[in-house]
Nucleic acid binder design. Structure first.
Length: 419
DNA sequence: TCTGGGGTCCTAGGACCC
DNA sequence: TCTGGGGTCCTAGGACCC
Protein backbone atom coordinates (compact mmCIF):
# COMPACT_ATOMS: atom_id res chain seq x y z
CA UNK A 1 0.00 0.00 0.00
CA UNK A 2 1.15 3.53 -0.79
CA UNK A 3 2.03 5.48 2.31
CA UNK A 4 1.93 9.15 3.16
CA UNK A 5 4.06 10.56 5.96
CA UNK A 6 3.90 14.11 7.24
CA UNK A 7 6.77 15.54 9.24
CA UNK A 8 5.88 18.41 11.57
CA UNK A 9 9.07 20.27 12.35
CA UNK A 10 9.11 23.41 14.52
CA UNK A 11 11.11 26.29 13.09
CA UNK A 12 14.09 27.26 15.27
CA UNK A 13 12.15 25.82 18.19
CA UNK A 14 14.00 27.21 21.23
CA UNK A 15 14.28 30.67 19.70
CA UNK A 16 10.59 30.57 18.74
CA UNK A 17 9.66 29.72 22.35
CA UNK A 18 11.69 32.67 23.63
CA UNK A 19 10.00 34.97 21.14
CA UNK A 20 6.54 34.00 22.39
CA UNK A 21 7.18 35.86 25.62
CA UNK A 22 9.49 38.50 24.29
CA UNK A 23 8.18 39.79 20.97
CA UNK A 24 10.95 42.38 20.81
CA UNK A 25 13.19 39.48 19.72
CA UNK A 26 11.16 39.22 16.50
CA UNK A 27 13.21 40.12 13.42
CA UNK A 28 16.48 40.14 15.38
CA UNK A 29 19.31 37.62 15.24
CA UNK A 30 18.83 35.42 18.33
CA UNK A 31 20.60 32.26 19.50
CA UNK A 32 19.96 29.87 22.39
CA UNK A 33 22.93 28.26 24.15
CA UNK A 34 23.35 24.77 25.56
CA UNK A 35 23.77 23.97 29.25
CA UNK A 36 26.58 25.92 30.86
CA UNK A 37 26.27 28.43 28.01
CA UNK A 38 28.64 26.12 26.15
CA UNK A 39 27.56 26.06 22.54
CA UNK A 40 24.91 27.32 20.18
CA UNK A 41 21.94 24.95 19.85
CA UNK A 42 19.22 27.04 18.23
CA UNK A 43 19.41 29.98 15.83
CA UNK A 44 16.84 32.37 14.41
CA UNK A 45 16.81 32.77 10.62
CA UNK A 46 18.55 36.14 11.02
CA UNK A 47 21.32 34.42 13.00
CA UNK A 48 21.64 31.70 10.34
CA UNK A 49 22.02 34.39 7.67
CA UNK A 50 24.94 35.85 9.62
CA UNK A 51 26.70 32.51 9.10
CA UNK A 52 26.58 31.33 12.72
CA UNK A 53 26.88 27.52 12.61
CA UNK A 54 24.91 25.04 14.68
CA UNK A 55 26.86 23.65 17.62
CA UNK A 56 29.58 26.31 17.55
CA UNK A 57 31.20 27.06 20.93
CA UNK A 58 29.81 30.29 22.32
CA UNK A 59 33.12 31.75 23.51
CA UNK A 60 34.46 31.88 19.95
CA UNK A 61 31.51 33.97 18.80
CA UNK A 62 31.04 36.29 21.77
CA UNK A 63 32.89 39.20 20.17
CA UNK A 64 31.08 38.79 16.86
CA UNK A 65 27.73 38.76 18.65
CA UNK A 66 28.56 42.05 20.34
CA UNK A 67 29.44 43.68 17.04
CA UNK A 68 26.39 42.36 15.22
CA UNK A 69 23.85 42.80 18.03
CA UNK A 70 23.10 39.09 18.27
CA UNK A 71 21.04 38.23 21.37
CA UNK A 72 22.33 35.09 23.16
CA UNK A 73 20.10 33.35 25.71
CA UNK A 74 20.75 30.43 28.08
CA UNK A 75 18.50 27.47 27.50
CA UNK A 76 15.24 27.37 29.44
CA UNK A 77 14.18 23.72 29.25
CA UNK A 78 11.21 24.15 31.57
CA UNK A 79 9.72 26.56 29.03
CA UNK A 80 10.56 24.50 25.91
CA UNK A 81 9.27 21.29 27.46
CA UNK A 82 5.99 22.91 28.39
CA UNK A 83 5.41 24.48 24.96
CA UNK A 84 6.35 21.20 23.29
CA UNK A 85 3.81 19.34 25.43
CA UNK A 86 1.03 21.70 24.36
CA UNK A 87 1.96 21.43 20.70
CA UNK A 88 2.12 17.62 20.75
CA UNK A 89 -1.23 17.44 22.50
CA UNK A 90 -2.71 19.60 19.77
CA UNK A 91 -1.30 17.21 17.13
CA UNK A 92 -2.74 14.18 18.88
CA UNK A 93 -6.15 15.81 18.99
CA UNK A 94 -5.97 16.76 15.33
CA UNK A 95 -4.56 13.63 13.69
CA UNK A 96 -5.24 9.90 13.99
CA UNK A 97 -1.69 8.48 14.13
CA UNK A 98 1.08 10.57 15.64
CA UNK A 99 4.62 9.67 16.61
CA UNK A 100 6.37 12.20 18.85
CA UNK A 101 9.91 12.06 17.58
CA UNK A 102 11.72 14.72 19.61
CA UNK A 103 11.01 17.87 21.56
CA UNK A 104 10.30 19.75 18.33
CA UNK A 105 9.38 17.12 15.74
CA UNK A 106 6.55 14.68 15.14
CA UNK A 107 5.41 12.31 12.40
CA UNK A 108 1.83 11.91 11.26
CA UNK A 109 0.61 9.00 9.13
CA UNK A 110 -1.70 10.44 6.50
CA UNK A 111 -1.88 7.30 4.33
CA UNK A 112 -5.62 6.99 4.81
CA UNK A 113 -6.36 10.70 4.53
CA UNK A 114 -8.31 11.76 1.43
CA UNK A 115 -6.60 15.13 1.14
CA UNK A 116 -3.22 15.39 2.90
CA UNK A 117 -2.53 18.77 1.39
CA UNK A 118 -5.54 20.61 2.79
CA UNK A 119 -5.19 18.78 6.10
CA UNK A 120 -1.60 19.96 6.40
CA UNK A 121 -2.44 23.51 5.44
CA UNK A 122 -5.11 23.73 8.12
CA UNK A 123 -2.92 22.03 10.71
CA UNK A 124 -0.10 24.46 10.18
CA UNK A 125 -2.43 27.41 10.62
CA UNK A 126 -3.98 25.88 13.74
CA UNK A 127 -0.58 25.29 15.37
CA UNK A 128 0.42 28.87 14.65
CA UNK A 129 -2.82 30.23 16.12
CA UNK A 130 -3.01 28.00 19.19
CA UNK A 131 0.63 27.79 20.24
CA UNK A 132 2.30 30.69 18.43
CA UNK A 133 5.04 28.38 17.12
CA UNK A 134 5.84 28.42 13.37
CA UNK A 135 6.24 24.93 11.87
CA UNK A 136 7.32 23.45 8.55
CA UNK A 137 5.53 20.43 7.12
CA UNK A 138 7.15 17.92 4.76
CA UNK A 139 4.86 15.35 3.13
CA UNK A 140 6.06 12.35 1.11
CA UNK A 141 5.70 8.57 0.67
CA UNK A 142 8.55 7.76 3.10
CA UNK A 143 9.98 9.30 6.25
CA UNK A 144 13.34 9.96 4.60
CA UNK A 145 11.66 11.82 1.71
CA UNK A 146 9.41 13.76 4.12
CA UNK A 147 12.61 14.96 5.80
CA UNK A 148 13.91 16.00 2.39
CA UNK A 149 10.66 17.83 1.63
CA UNK A 150 10.81 19.73 4.91
CA UNK A 151 14.48 20.58 4.45
CA UNK A 152 13.72 22.11 1.07
CA UNK A 153 10.69 23.97 2.42
CA UNK A 154 12.89 25.58 5.07
CA UNK A 155 15.29 26.83 2.40
CA UNK A 156 12.58 28.08 0.04
CA UNK A 157 10.40 30.88 1.40
CA UNK A 158 8.04 30.66 -1.59
CA UNK A 159 6.84 27.26 -0.31
CA UNK A 160 5.40 28.94 2.79
CA UNK A 161 6.37 26.24 5.26
CA UNK A 162 4.89 23.31 3.38
CA UNK A 163 6.19 20.92 0.75
CA UNK A 164 4.71 17.81 -0.85
CA UNK A 165 7.06 15.46 -2.64
CA UNK A 166 5.42 12.67 -4.63
CA UNK A 167 6.18 12.61 -8.37
CA UNK A 168 9.33 10.75 -9.37
CA UNK A 169 10.64 13.69 -11.38
CA UNK A 170 9.97 16.08 -8.46
CA UNK A 171 11.77 13.76 -6.06
CA UNK A 172 14.81 13.43 -8.33
CA UNK A 173 14.92 17.16 -8.78
CA UNK A 174 14.96 17.63 -5.00
CA UNK A 175 17.63 14.97 -4.49
CA UNK A 176 19.88 16.62 -7.07
CA UNK A 177 20.05 19.75 -4.92
CA UNK A 178 21.04 17.98 -1.68
CA UNK A 179 24.44 16.74 -0.54
CA UNK A 180 24.41 13.16 0.71
CA UNK A 181 25.13 14.24 4.31
CA UNK A 182 21.96 16.33 4.34
CA UNK A 183 19.94 13.12 4.33
CA UNK A 184 18.39 11.68 7.46
CA UNK A 185 20.67 9.00 8.93
CA UNK A 186 23.84 10.11 7.17
CA UNK A 187 26.41 11.97 9.21
CA UNK A 188 29.88 13.27 8.44
CA UNK A 189 31.61 9.88 8.77
CA UNK A 190 29.37 7.99 6.40
CA UNK A 191 29.31 10.91 3.96
CA UNK A 192 33.12 10.86 3.74
CA UNK A 193 33.15 7.12 3.02
CA UNK A 194 30.37 7.48 0.45
CA UNK A 195 32.26 10.26 -1.30
CA UNK A 196 35.28 7.99 -1.70
CA UNK A 197 33.00 5.78 -3.77
CA UNK A 198 31.73 8.66 -5.88
CA UNK A 199 28.44 9.13 -4.04
CA UNK A 200 28.29 12.79 -3.10
CA UNK A 201 24.77 14.00 -3.97
CA UNK A 202 21.58 12.56 -2.51
CA UNK A 203 20.55 11.50 -6.01
CA UNK A 204 23.73 9.38 -6.33
CA UNK A 205 22.68 7.39 -3.26
CA UNK A 206 19.19 6.87 -4.66
CA UNK A 207 20.73 5.45 -7.82
CA UNK A 208 23.26 3.26 -6.00
CA UNK A 209 22.77 -0.51 -5.84
CA UNK A 210 21.00 -1.18 -2.51
CA UNK A 211 22.52 -4.65 -2.13
CA UNK A 212 26.02 -3.36 -2.70
CA UNK A 213 25.35 -0.59 -0.17
CA UNK A 214 24.27 -3.20 2.35
CA UNK A 215 27.41 -5.23 1.82
CA UNK A 216 29.74 -2.24 2.01
CA UNK A 217 27.97 -0.33 4.77
CA UNK A 218 24.92 -1.56 6.69
CA UNK A 219 21.28 -2.54 6.47
CA UNK A 220 20.34 0.88 7.76
CA UNK A 221 21.94 2.58 4.80
CA UNK A 222 20.34 0.09 2.44
CA UNK A 223 16.96 1.05 3.88
CA UNK A 224 17.75 4.69 3.24
CA UNK A 225 18.32 3.85 -0.43
CA UNK A 226 14.92 2.14 -0.63
CA UNK A 227 13.29 5.06 1.15
CA UNK A 228 14.77 7.47 -1.40
CA UNK A 229 13.13 5.28 -4.05
CA UNK A 230 9.77 5.90 -2.34
CA UNK A 231 9.60 2.44 -0.76
CA UNK A 232 8.82 2.88 2.93
CA UNK A 233 11.09 0.99 5.35
CA UNK A 234 10.67 3.08 8.48
CA UNK A 235 7.13 3.00 9.85
CA UNK A 236 5.35 5.13 12.40
CA UNK A 237 6.13 4.18 15.98
CA UNK A 238 3.09 5.23 17.88
CA UNK A 239 3.46 3.35 21.13
CA UNK A 240 5.84 5.18 23.36
CA UNK A 241 8.21 2.41 24.29
CA UNK A 242 9.88 2.70 27.68
CA UNK A 243 13.50 3.84 27.59
CA UNK A 244 16.23 1.19 27.34
CA UNK A 245 18.67 3.25 29.31
CA UNK A 246 18.53 6.35 31.46
CA UNK A 247 21.42 8.76 31.59
CA UNK A 248 21.91 11.73 33.84
CA UNK A 249 25.12 13.72 33.52
CA UNK A 250 26.58 17.18 33.23
CA UNK A 251 29.69 19.09 32.45
CA UNK A 252 30.57 20.91 35.65
CA UNK A 253 30.35 24.66 36.07
CA UNK A 254 34.09 24.55 36.88
CA UNK A 255 36.88 21.97 36.99
CA UNK A 256 36.73 19.83 40.13
CA UNK A 257 39.51 18.09 42.07
CA UNK A 258 37.88 17.04 45.32
CA UNK A 259 36.16 13.73 45.90
CA UNK A 260 33.44 15.38 47.97
CA UNK A 261 32.39 17.66 45.13
CA UNK A 262 32.18 14.67 42.81
CA UNK A 263 30.14 12.73 45.34
CA UNK A 264 27.69 15.61 45.64
CA UNK A 265 27.29 15.85 41.87
CA UNK A 266 26.90 12.10 41.46
CA UNK A 267 24.27 11.94 44.20
CA UNK A 268 22.31 14.54 42.29
CA UNK A 269 22.55 12.57 39.02
CA UNK A 270 21.46 9.36 40.71
CA UNK A 271 18.39 11.12 42.08
CA UNK A 272 17.54 12.46 38.64
CA UNK A 273 17.97 9.06 37.00
CA UNK A 274 15.96 7.32 39.73
CA UNK A 275 13.15 9.84 39.31
CA UNK A 276 12.88 8.95 35.63
CA UNK A 277 13.10 5.26 36.46
CA UNK A 278 10.05 5.56 38.71
CA UNK A 279 8.23 7.73 36.23
CA UNK A 280 8.27 4.82 33.77
CA UNK A 281 7.69 2.21 36.48
CA UNK A 282 11.04 0.59 35.72
CA UNK A 283 13.80 -1.02 37.74
CA UNK A 284 17.46 -1.16 36.73
CA UNK A 285 19.54 -4.30 36.67
CA UNK A 286 22.77 -2.46 35.93
CA UNK A 287 24.30 0.88 36.74
CA UNK A 288 27.40 2.62 35.52
CA UNK A 289 29.12 5.71 36.90
CA UNK A 290 31.55 7.66 34.73
CA UNK A 291 33.99 10.52 35.14
CA UNK A 292 35.67 12.67 32.52
CA UNK A 293 39.05 14.23 33.24
CA UNK A 294 41.87 16.07 31.53
CA UNK A 295 41.92 18.72 28.79
CA UNK A 296 39.05 18.77 26.29
CA UNK A 297 37.69 16.42 25.05
CA UNK A 298 39.21 14.49 27.95
CA UNK A 299 39.31 10.86 28.99
CA UNK A 300 36.32 8.93 30.25
CA UNK A 301 36.59 6.25 32.90
CA UNK A 302 33.64 4.26 34.09
CA UNK A 303 32.72 1.53 36.54
CA UNK A 304 29.64 -0.68 36.28
CA UNK A 305 27.76 -2.87 38.65
CA UNK A 306 25.15 -5.55 38.13
CA UNK A 307 22.62 -5.84 40.93
CA UNK A 308 21.48 -9.26 42.07
CA UNK A 309 17.95 -8.14 41.35
CA UNK A 310 16.62 -5.13 39.42
CA UNK A 311 16.48 -2.17 41.75
CA UNK A 312 14.25 0.89 41.73
CA UNK A 313 14.83 2.65 45.02
CA UNK A 314 17.00 5.75 45.21
CA UNK A 315 18.80 4.87 48.42
CA UNK A 316 20.15 1.58 47.11
CA UNK A 317 21.26 3.23 43.88
CA UNK A 318 22.90 6.09 45.78
CA UNK A 319 24.88 3.72 47.98
CA UNK A 320 26.25 1.74 45.08
CA UNK A 321 26.96 4.77 42.90
CA UNK A 322 28.92 6.35 45.73
CA UNK A 323 31.11 3.32 46.17
CA UNK A 324 31.70 3.00 42.40
CA UNK A 325 32.69 6.66 42.30
CA UNK A 326 35.13 6.30 45.18
CA UNK A 327 36.79 3.39 43.39
CA UNK A 328 37.18 5.46 40.21
CA UNK A 329 38.45 8.63 41.85
CA UNK A 330 42.13 9.57 41.71
CA UNK A 331 43.43 12.65 43.52
CA UNK A 332 45.19 15.35 41.45
CA UNK A 333 42.97 14.74 38.44
CA UNK A 334 41.09 17.62 36.85
CA UNK A 335 37.53 16.40 36.53
CA UNK A 336 35.20 18.15 34.08
CA UNK A 337 32.11 15.96 33.91
CA UNK A 338 30.42 13.05 35.58
CA UNK A 339 27.29 11.03 35.15
CA UNK A 340 25.26 7.95 35.90
CA UNK A 341 23.73 5.47 33.46
CA UNK A 342 21.02 2.99 34.41
CA UNK A 343 20.51 0.18 31.91
CA UNK A 344 19.10 -3.29 31.49
CA UNK A 345 15.77 -1.78 32.55
CA UNK A 346 12.76 -3.94 33.36
CA UNK A 347 9.21 -3.11 34.39
CA UNK A 348 9.01 -3.09 38.16
CA UNK A 349 6.18 -5.61 37.96
CA UNK A 350 8.31 -8.35 36.34
CA UNK A 351 10.28 -8.77 39.46
CA UNK A 352 12.10 -12.07 39.50
CA UNK A 353 12.27 -13.67 42.92
CA UNK A 354 15.70 -13.92 44.41
CA UNK A 355 17.29 -17.24 45.26
CA UNK A 356 18.32 -15.73 48.56
CA UNK A 357 15.77 -14.90 51.24
CA UNK A 358 14.74 -11.25 50.87
CA UNK A 359 15.93 -8.75 53.41
CA UNK A 360 12.41 -7.60 53.97
CA UNK A 361 13.06 -5.26 56.83
CA UNK A 362 15.77 -3.37 54.97
CA UNK A 363 13.79 -3.26 51.75
CA UNK A 364 10.79 -1.78 53.49
CA UNK A 365 12.87 0.89 55.15
CA UNK A 366 14.50 1.78 51.85
CA UNK A 367 11.22 1.93 50.04
CA UNK A 368 9.73 4.32 52.60
CA UNK A 369 12.83 6.52 52.58
CA UNK A 370 13.00 6.59 48.81
CA UNK A 371 9.37 7.55 48.61
CA UNK A 372 9.86 10.40 51.10
CA UNK A 373 12.97 11.56 49.34
CA UNK A 374 10.96 11.98 46.18
CA UNK A 375 7.64 13.24 47.47
CA UNK A 376 8.55 15.63 50.26
CA UNK A 377 10.61 18.03 48.16
CA UNK A 378 7.83 18.05 45.55
CA UNK A 379 5.27 19.15 48.11
CA UNK A 380 7.25 21.30 50.50
CA UNK A 381 10.06 22.75 48.38
CA UNK A 382 13.29 21.47 46.90
CA UNK A 383 15.45 21.79 49.98
CA UNK A 384 13.23 20.14 52.60
CA UNK A 385 14.82 16.72 52.34
CA UNK A 386 18.11 15.87 50.70
CA UNK A 387 20.73 13.16 50.88
CA UNK A 388 23.78 13.98 52.99
CA UNK A 389 26.17 13.48 50.09
CA UNK A 390 24.43 16.21 48.14
CA UNK A 391 25.57 18.73 50.73
CA UNK A 392 29.25 18.02 50.15
CA UNK A 393 29.60 20.58 47.39
CA UNK A 394 27.90 22.96 45.01
CA UNK A 395 30.70 23.89 42.65
CA UNK A 396 29.67 21.34 40.05
CA UNK A 397 26.48 23.24 39.30
CA UNK A 398 26.00 25.03 36.02
CA UNK A 399 26.38 28.63 35.11
CA UNK A 400 23.33 30.15 33.54
CA UNK A 401 24.02 33.75 32.87
CA UNK A 402 21.36 34.59 30.35
CA UNK A 403 18.31 32.61 31.26
CA UNK A 404 14.80 33.90 30.68
CA UNK A 405 12.06 33.24 33.29
CA UNK A 406 10.05 30.00 33.41
CA UNK A 407 7.04 31.85 32.05
CA UNK A 408 4.68 28.91 31.96
CA UNK A 409 5.86 26.55 34.70
CA UNK A 410 6.58 28.64 37.81
CA UNK A 411 3.98 30.80 39.49
CA UNK A 412 6.56 33.37 40.57
CA UNK A 413 7.73 33.83 36.99
CA UNK A 414 4.47 34.19 35.12
CA UNK A 415 4.56 37.33 32.99
CA UNK A 416 2.60 40.24 34.45
CA UNK A 417 0.53 42.65 32.40
CA UNK A 418 1.01 46.21 33.58
CA UNK A 419 -2.04 48.46 33.53
C1' DT B 1 39.38 30.43 30.37
C1' DC B 2 35.22 28.70 27.53
C1' DT B 3 33.50 22.80 23.47
C1' DG B 4 25.60 20.04 25.79
C1' DG B 5 22.75 16.27 27.24
C1' DG B 6 19.97 12.39 26.20
C1' DG B 7 19.02 8.83 23.41
C1' DT B 8 18.86 4.66 19.61
C1' DC B 9 20.48 1.08 16.57
C1' DC B 10 23.94 -1.86 14.33
C1' DT B 11 28.19 -4.59 14.01
C1' DA B 12 32.06 -7.38 15.07
C1' DG B 13 34.19 -10.44 17.96
C1' DG B 14 34.55 -13.54 21.84
C1' DA B 15 32.67 -17.09 24.85
C1' DC B 16 29.96 -20.74 25.06
C1' DC B 17 26.62 -24.50 23.64
C1' DC B 18 25.36 -28.88 21.09
C1' DT C 1 48.02 -34.59 6.79
C1' DC C 2 43.46 -34.02 8.37
C1' DT C 3 41.18 -29.57 12.52
C1' DG C 4 32.73 -28.93 11.57
C1' DG C 5 28.77 -26.24 11.43
C1' DG C 6 25.46 -24.31 13.41
C1' DG C 7 23.54 -21.47 17.00
C1' DT C 8 22.97 -17.81 21.14
C1' DC C 9 24.28 -14.28 24.20
C1' DC C 10 27.07 -10.56 25.72
C1' DT C 11 30.00 -6.50 25.23
C1' DA C 12 32.43 -2.64 23.33
C1' DG C 13 32.56 0.59 20.04
C1' DG C 14 30.92 3.24 16.21
C1' DA C 15 27.58 5.91 13.99
C1' DC C 16 23.58 8.42 13.96
C1' DC C 17 19.59 11.51 15.72
C1' DC C 18 17.59 15.93 17.99
Amino acid sequence: MKKTFCLVDCDNFYVSCERLFNPSLEGKPVVVLSNNDGCIVSRSNEAKLLGIPMGAPFFRWKEFFKQQGVVALSSNYALYGDISGRLMQLLEESAPCVEIYSIDEAWIDLSAHPSPESFARELREKIRRWTGIPVTLGIAPTKTLAKVASKIAKKTTALKGMNLLFGEEEIDQALRTLEVDELWGIGARLAAKLKERGISKAIDLKNADPFKIRRLFSVMLERTVWELRAISCFGLEENVSPPKQILSSQTFGQTLFSLDELRAATAHFVKEAARKLRQFGLAAHQMSVFLRHGPFPGYIESASFRFMEPIGDVIGLLEKADSLLQALYKPQRAYTKSGVILFDLLPQSCHQASFWPPEEEKERKYATLSHLLEELPKQKGKLTLRVGTELLGENWRLRFQRKTPSYTSRWEEIPAVKA
